[in-house]
């Protein structure tokens, strides 16, 4: 039996404990920061650094093992399943925030406005409040604000992400056809599109804060808007970093038509980020 036909069980690893240390430092730092201790942020930085170190080392080990041919098909399948279910968990994370958006739009805002079961709520507590969307609630938390029109930059961003879905697929074909230069080019294009998307989003946020008075504390609209687009943006950022790594690995010729799970994992992740954006575009911006 050659090594690659056997299931590779690594013999101990100190990366998980490094990761745990990083996570703990990060959250302890953040919690202290939130509680008003400015030094917390430095602890959080240490945490992030430790996590990055862990990712570097852990993935490094795996790349090394993969290149040594230690991974059998079966190991590959384990990784695929792991990634699939991880993405599913991310879907559910976003579902919570989409759920919050639907709930407030369908129930709490109308009730506060006196519809359905809310007649007394409106009459006694929030007399004069009319249920509309966007809304920052009956108390107008955060003051008057304007929203970002869907068909401007957000639409452009939609096109950008869709295009990036295309470019990464082209890169995948290139992997399958063993065209290394094409791989790198298309991956680089995907990275660029991701970066442009992020640039536009950052720009949009600045505009929202500086000109539209649309902030995280603009009532429920601001809350759902920034939490949904913000977590999405975070995922795009992570995705872009992963893409950059993959691009370098492609340049080093790590991927063969048979063995390129890391590439696929990133591609799946990117598509997932893409699909979430479509949901956002429709439910946050358009409707």
């Amino acid at each position: 039996m050659t090594t690659a036909e056997r299931y590779y069980v690594p013999h101990g690893s100190h990366w998980p404990i490094v990761g745990t240390f990083g996570m703990m430092t990060l959250v302890i730092g953040l919690a202290n920061l939130f509680n008003g201790h400015d030094w917390g942020i430095y602890l959080a930085y240490v945490g992030v650094a430790a996590i990055l170190f862990m990712l570097w080392g852990w993935f490094g080990d795996q790349i090394h093992e993969s290149l040594k041919g230690l991974y059998s098909k079966q190991v590959d399948v384990s990784y695929r399943m792991g990634m699939t279910w991880f993405i599913f968990s991310e879907v559910m994370f976003f579902a919570a925030f989409f759920g919050a958006l639907f709930y407030t739009r369908e129930y709490s805002i109308p009730w506060l406005g006196g519809e359905g079961a809310g007649a007394w709520t409106n009459f006694i507590l929030w007399n004069g409040y009319e249920a509309t969307w966007p809304s920052n609630g009956p108390a107008g938390i955060g003051g008057d604000f304007e929203t970002i029109p869907a068909w401007g930059v957000p639409f452009l961003n939609t096109l950008i992400l869709l295009t990036s879905g295309l470019t990464i697929t082209l890169a995948h074909w290139a992997v399958k056809k063993q065209k290394q230069l094409q791989q790198v080019v298309w991956l680089a294009a995907t990275v660029a599109l991701g970066a442009i998307f992020l640039y536009f989003q950052a720009h949009e946020y600045m505009e929202a804060y500086n000109e539209l008075n649309l902030t995280l504390s603009s009532g429920i609209y601001g809350s759902t808007f920034f939490m949904l687009t913000g977590f999405h943006g975070l995922h795009v950022t992570l995705g872009t970093i992963m893409l950059i790594v993959i691009t370098f690995r492609a340049a080093k010729g790590h991927f063969t038509p048979e063995n390129h799970f890391a590439f696929e994992a990133v591609a799946w992740y990117w598509h997932f980020v893409d699909v979430v954006w479509l949901g956002l575009f429709i439910f946050v911006y358009v409707l």
Binding site: G118, T121, I124
Partner: peptide
């Protein structure tokens, strides 16, 4: 029993 919820009125 019925919950008394801040910001909302239950009947």
């Amino acid at each position: 029993k019925r919950d008394a919820i801040p910001g909302f009125v239950n009947e």
